[in-house]
């Protein structure tokens, strides 16, 4: 892809809230318009009604793979796309949708008498990479705007994007953000992959690791610290990191990892 010809870009959604696509529309005008000099959006249902025809240079897929019936559509997107990018936490790791992988009693509670309707039928929530080959991921819930720009910019230049493998703590410390643990709170920043700029702790909110874990999180120490320093109960300390990393934990359901090529 040369910066001189515009790259055709499309967005698709699966099991998700579509918040990542909304977040894209929040990308500042300057950044968005800057990128539009280099890309052409051919499908994006949050902002346009056209449907993509033919080859796509970059496909962004939002949402997790949670129904076998979706496999064909994913495979179709893959076959038409030069590059496939998991767009946001759900697509990249299963994200918050993967919480269901460790529960069995939610259907009735959520849907009441409709719980058995066929369109609600789903299996484990898995990353898109469990169905098709994924080239890159824009992490975060919602997806990180800066990382979106970094990845698109890198692809335009044929460069492997720089995605950090250090935890959020690094970003908090650089900004002189007060550590939640020093405020009688808890936090998952020590095991959470950085790259977001650590906005949550800066606003006084614990990091929930929405960008997933670093490559090798110390999960035992995490439970220990959440209990001893964060004041969480044994059970809550153990379950705490599931909110966004259910498929990344050592007790993830089978098949949650990336598909082997």
């Amino acid at each position: 892809m040369s910066p001189k010809t515009k790259a055709k870009v499309a967005f698709f959604d699966f099991t998700s809230c579509e918040g990542c696509q909304i977040e894209l529309t929040n990308l500042g005008e300057k950044a968005f318009m800057g990128l539009l000099d280099h890309i052409e959006i051919v499908e994006f249902r949050e902002a346009m009604s056209e449907k993509a025809q033919g080859r796509i240079d970059i496909s962004f897929i939002e949402g997790s793979f949670s129904r076998e019936a979706d496999r064909k559509r994913l495979e179709d997107i893959r076959s038409r796309s030069n590059v496939v990018i998991a767009f946001g936490a759900c697509a990249a790791t299963g994200g918050v949708t993967a919480l269901k992988n460790h529960m069995s009693d939610y259907s009735e509670a959520v849907y009441g008498k409709d719980a058995k309707m066929p369109h609600l039928d789903s299996s484990f929530a898995l990353p898109v990479s469990a169905a098709i080959k994924v080239d890159y991921s824009v992490l975060g819930c919602p997806m990180s705007q800066a990382e979106f720009v970094e990845i698109v910019s890198s692809l335009l230049h044929g460069k492997e994007p720089v995605i950090p493998n250090h935890p959020v703590c690094v970003e908090c410390k650089k900004k002189s953000t007060l550590c939640r643990y020093g405020q009688g709170d808890h936090c998952l920043g020590m095991v959470a992959r950085a790259g977001c700029g650590a906005p949550c702790p800066a606003d006084g909110i614990p990091c929930e690791a929405c960008r997933g874990f670093v490559d090798h999180p110390n999960q035992e120490a995490l439970v220990k610290v959440l209990r001893e320093k964060g004041g969480l109960s044994e059970e809550r300390a153990f379950n705490k990191s599931r909110i966004f990393t259910a498929n990344l934990r050592s007790d993830a359901v089978k098949g949650a990892g990336a598909r082997k090529e």
């Binding site: 703590c169 410390k173 550590c179 095991v191 670093v214």
Partner: peptide, 9 residues
Amino acid sequence: SKDCFSCGS
């Protein structure tokens, strides 16, 4: 280093 998160703080 048993409890170290390699967090770099």
